[in-house]
Design a protein around this nucleic acid. Sequence first.
DNA 1: GCAAAAGTGTTGGGCGTACACCCATGC
DNA 2: GCATGGGTGTACGCCCAACACTTTTGC
Lengths: 241, 241
Amino acid sequence: MYEEKEGLPAVTRKFYEQGEKMLVATDCIIFGFDAGSLKLLLFKRRVSPLEGQWSLIGSFVKLDEDVSAAAERVLEEITGLKDVYMEELKVYGAVDRDPGFRCISVGQYALIRLNEYDKKLVEQHGAVWHDVKDLPALVLDHEQMVNDALEKLKFKARYQPLGIELLPEKFTIPQLQSVYEAIFQRELDTRNFRKKVFSHNVLVKLDEKDKSSSKRGAFLYKFDHKRYSDLLKGGSDFGVL
Amino acid sequence: MYEEKEGLPAVTRKFYEQGEKMLVATDCIIFGFDAGSLKLLLFKRRVSPLEGQWSLIGSFVKLDEDVSAAAERVLEEITGLKDVYMEELKVYGAVDRDPGFRCISVGQYALIRLNEYDKKLVEQHGAVWHDVKDLPALVLDHEQMVNDALEKLKFKARYQPLGIELLPEKFTIPQLQSVYEAIFQRELDTRNFRKKVFSHNVLVKLDEKDKSSSKRGAFLYKFDHKRYSDLLKGGSDFGVL
DNA sequence: GCAAAAGTGTTGGGCGTACACCCATGC
DNA sequence: GCATGGGTGTACGCCCAACACTTTTGC
């Protein structure tokens, strides 16, 4: 627990006492990818307030916890995952956004691999994956958060290889294309897509094929993280279209 | 003043009481443009804590105030300006960022016209314009905020006509080019710049010249806000390079 | 042998970039 | 008449978008 600091001059203490304190929450927009479509992890609230309604997964930020750490804690509590791609979306700071008490929320979105998370943990929390094309109504301003996150994801995916965050370590090019088609909500041209992703030289072809989705089978690739970070320093971008 | 809500079920009250409350501040990164360079409005603190040191202009967010409204209030208190281009930068939420009490800050950056602000008000607050290429040390994590804001400004200026937010209503093309050169910190080619800005068809040529910086004089233009918002709906972008 | 997905090249147009000279005017 | 900044056009290369057929293999 974090205490008011001792030993500050009176005038300084007064300065901080003037400030009105409020709740700070973080809500996580957790994306996954499966069966050709983008999924969102939602949570049916089992406790008051707003019991029984769908919401994002969130928590209050503790006094002794960084805001980003709070989001990481929430994500780990519900999926068992650490070290996940996660980024701040924006602040939701309207006075009346939470009917209980003044509370601002920092939206943060995460991309996770559906083959890695802890299914039991998710179930225990009453969380369910929903297709982003078919979402239920959500509490408070959570629908706005989801829409903002989808927009930002579309935008960022044009310049950063976010697609690989949603796939297993080994993946095929058709799978990768399918991820981007789900993000952009439109079909991409196979030849142009391959040309583009290979042009960055960050994919390593393996000697294995995945035959789960075709008779011929597609070669598996993995992402070369080291080469990627080297190229980033050179200021490259990693668009797929 | 904002009170704890009455009439909530006990379990709901408990839920909100569990949350640890903290200070929420907003800090404004206020950019202006003058004499060919980008300026930042900084503030020499006259009160404890951190008296005498340079800092951004900020304030605690009040319980009955939206986060964005707090930034607008701060900006108006110090410059007299309303309805200014302002946008959220990001949240600064590290536990130890403020030595006084746990306080997260929402950085917000603003672009203002140096011919419009209230000079007396700025003076009264001990605020001074500094060239961004020559900034003093700043308190807390404010230097990080400034760097982040400069990065974001560079990035966004490629796709949105932010330059005009820093110029008077009537401006010349060389002035506009000079704004972008200050933002990107490099020289731009005059012919390509003109080609690009005119290609968007959002500048209206006036029948006046500005002779303040050359004998020949440069034609003044104004920005066609209506045409711009119409084009935006069509999904255009407004790059200058 | 056929269905179903994997994989492969070429072309045209638009956009960004590089580059050099004449114009108008005040002094 | 000259110094100073304002204003203009072209040519090249690159990247994006459009487009159709062959390959592999399980059934």
